[in-house]
Design a protein around this nucleic acid. Structure first.
Length: 219
DNA sequence: GTGGTCAACGAGAGGA
DNA sequence: TCCTCTCGTTGACCAC
């Protein structure tokens, strides 16, 4: 198996695409941390690990981006390599489908990366760590924007419902008032001897019995 | 020509 | 002080 294929396999394992390599074995074989699964397993918080000195140890200590690292310094792609010039002119990089898919899969698992994971992913994709970092930053921003849109729609719907309810209640109130101030005041015959009347001043229900004793009803 | 998308950047905030 | 994050912006590219 070629080195790159091995790394991709490692990435797939790390992304939950099947298979499992015992952690112990990986350490014993001193495999490179270009296998993302190992990076995720061993460095959940980004501590440097002693797996491959060339690629991993001390990553968190060094500043990954120094100045402007324009796209794909490491890329073998001819187009991309053209992007890497020092003229200061920013060339637009388009990530390949595979690169985007891998980044997307990785993002589904972890929306943020620690330095080790970042470097491992960058190695897998033949990109710079800085590029992976930027991709994740932009991806988080896109997710947030999308979520904001969803929330906005929900709030809009909720607001509409409240407006409808408010309108309904206002109409209901108007109808009740119309009943109260109409030509014949609210009067309900309870029995042969008693009626229920609404007091026009205090809006309280009053039961009037035969003996003309008024009894206020607690509403 | 114009608008949308997205990689890349800089400023500023916050945590360790 | 270093590092990483968010936010706002820029500029290249693409489709129309």
């Amino acid at each position: 198996m070629e080195a790159d294929e091995e790394c991709i396999t490692g990435l797939c394992l790390g992304l939950g695409m099947g298979g499992h390599v015992p952690k112990k074995d990986k350490q014993k074989e001193n495999k490179t941390v270009t296998c993302l699964d190992l990076a995720f397993e061993l460095c959940p918080k980004g501590e440097a690990i002693n797996v491959n000195h060339d690629k991993v140890e001390g990553i968190s200590l060094e500043r990954i981006h120094e100045g402007h690292d324009y796209p794909n310094e490491k890329s073998t792609d001819s187009d991309n390599s053209n992007n890497n010039n020092n003229s200061g002119c920013r060339k637009k990089l388009r990530l390949s489908k595979d690169q985007s898919a891998m980044l997307e899969n990785s993002f589904k698992l972890h929306s943020t990366l620690n330095p080790v994971q970042k470097q491992a992913l960058a190695d897998q994709l033949n990109l710079k760590a800085r590029q992976v970092e930027v991709w994740f930053q932009n991806r988080r921003a896109r997710t947030k924007l999308k979520q904001t849109e969803v929330d906005r729609e929900l709030l809009k719907k909720h607001c509409q419902n409240l407006s409808d309810e408010n309108r309904r209640l206002k109409r209901e109130l108007q109808e009740l008032r119309a009943l109260k101030v109409g030509p014949s005041p609210l009067r309900i015959q309870l029995s042969k001897t008693a009626t229920l009347t609404m007091c026009s001043s205090c809006e309280k229900l009053v039961k009037v019995d035969e003996g003309n004793k008024n009894v206020e009803i607690d509403t």
